[in-house]
Protein backbone atom coordinates (compact mmCIF):
# COMPACT_ATOMS: atom_id res chain seq x y z
CA UNK A 1 0.00 0.00 0.00
CA UNK A 2 1.07 3.56 -0.70
CA UNK A 3 0.33 6.44 1.66
CA UNK A 4 0.86 10.16 1.59
CA UNK A 5 1.93 11.78 4.84
CA UNK A 6 1.99 15.42 5.76
CA UNK A 7 4.09 16.37 8.78
CA UNK A 8 4.80 19.57 10.65
CA UNK A 9 8.07 19.42 12.56
CA UNK A 10 10.09 21.54 14.95
CA UNK A 11 13.13 22.92 13.17
CA UNK A 12 16.00 20.95 14.69
CA UNK A 13 19.18 19.93 12.86
CA UNK A 14 18.43 16.23 13.37
CA UNK A 15 14.67 16.26 12.89
CA UNK A 16 14.72 14.69 9.41
CA UNK A 17 16.99 11.90 10.66
CA UNK A 18 14.56 11.20 13.49
CA UNK A 19 11.60 10.93 11.16
CA UNK A 20 13.40 8.89 8.51
CA UNK A 21 14.84 6.50 11.08
CA UNK A 22 11.38 5.72 12.41
CA UNK A 23 10.00 5.31 8.88
CA UNK A 24 12.72 2.79 8.00
CA UNK A 25 12.73 0.91 11.30
CA UNK A 26 8.95 0.49 11.36
CA UNK A 27 8.99 -1.11 7.92
CA UNK A 28 8.10 1.65 5.47
CA UNK A 29 9.87 2.78 2.30
CA UNK A 30 10.04 6.43 1.27
CA UNK A 31 9.15 6.81 -2.40
CA UNK A 32 8.91 10.60 -2.62
CA UNK A 33 9.72 13.43 -0.22
CA UNK A 34 9.61 17.19 -0.11
CA UNK A 35 10.74 19.32 2.78
CA UNK A 36 10.53 23.06 3.34
CA UNK A 37 11.51 25.32 6.21
CA UNK A 38 8.65 27.36 7.63
CA UNK A 39 9.89 30.56 9.29
CA UNK A 40 12.51 30.17 12.01
CA UNK A 41 10.80 27.38 13.94
CA UNK A 42 9.00 24.95 11.67
CA UNK A 43 9.52 22.39 8.95
CA UNK A 44 6.87 21.10 6.58
CA UNK A 45 7.47 17.61 5.24
CA UNK A 46 5.41 15.85 2.60
CA UNK A 47 6.24 12.19 2.17
CA UNK A 48 4.99 9.24 0.16
CA UNK A 49 5.64 5.87 1.81
CA UNK A 50 4.97 2.24 0.91
CA UNK A 51 4.47 -0.80 3.11
CA UNK A 52 2.40 -3.92 3.63
CA UNK A 53 1.86 -2.73 7.19
CA UNK A 54 -1.03 -0.57 8.39
CA UNK A 55 -0.15 3.11 8.27
CA UNK A 56 -1.19 3.59 11.91
CA UNK A 57 1.84 1.52 12.92
CA UNK A 58 3.95 4.33 11.50
CA UNK A 59 1.86 7.38 12.37
CA UNK A 60 1.48 6.29 16.00
CA UNK A 61 5.26 6.07 16.30
CA UNK A 62 5.82 9.39 14.50
CA UNK A 63 3.31 11.08 16.79
CA UNK A 64 5.47 10.04 19.73
CA UNK A 65 8.50 11.98 18.47
CA UNK A 66 8.86 15.19 20.49
CA UNK A 67 9.73 17.24 17.40
CA UNK A 68 6.67 16.11 15.44
CA UNK A 69 3.96 18.72 15.92
CA UNK A 70 1.45 17.21 13.53
CA UNK A 71 1.29 14.07 11.42
CA UNK A 72 -1.57 13.42 8.97
CA UNK A 73 -2.33 10.81 6.39
CA UNK A 74 -3.69 12.45 3.25
CA UNK A 75 -6.78 10.84 1.79
Amino acid sequence: MSYQLSLTLVQQPEVLERVLRVVRHRGFKVTKMEMQLEGDQGVRLAMHVESERAIELLTNQLDKLFDVIDCRVQA
Binding site: E14, E17, R18, R21, H25, L65, F66
Partner: peptide, 13 residues
Amino acid sequence: LGMSLSCTKHSFM
Protein backbone atom coordinates in the same frame (compact mmCIF):
# COMPACT_ATOMS: atom_id res chain seq x y z
CA LEU B 1 23.21 12.70 18.88
CA GLY B 2 23.00 10.57 15.73
CA MET B 3 23.93 7.47 17.70
CA SER B 4 21.27 8.19 20.31
CA LEU B 5 18.31 8.28 17.93
CA SER B 6 17.55 4.58 18.08
CA CYS B 7 18.32 3.97 21.76
CA THR B 8 16.66 6.87 23.58
CA LYS B 9 13.16 8.24 24.07
CA HIS B 10 14.59 11.62 23.11
CA SER B 11 17.97 13.29 22.90
CA PHE B 12 19.50 16.73 22.69
CA MET B 13 22.78 18.37 21.78
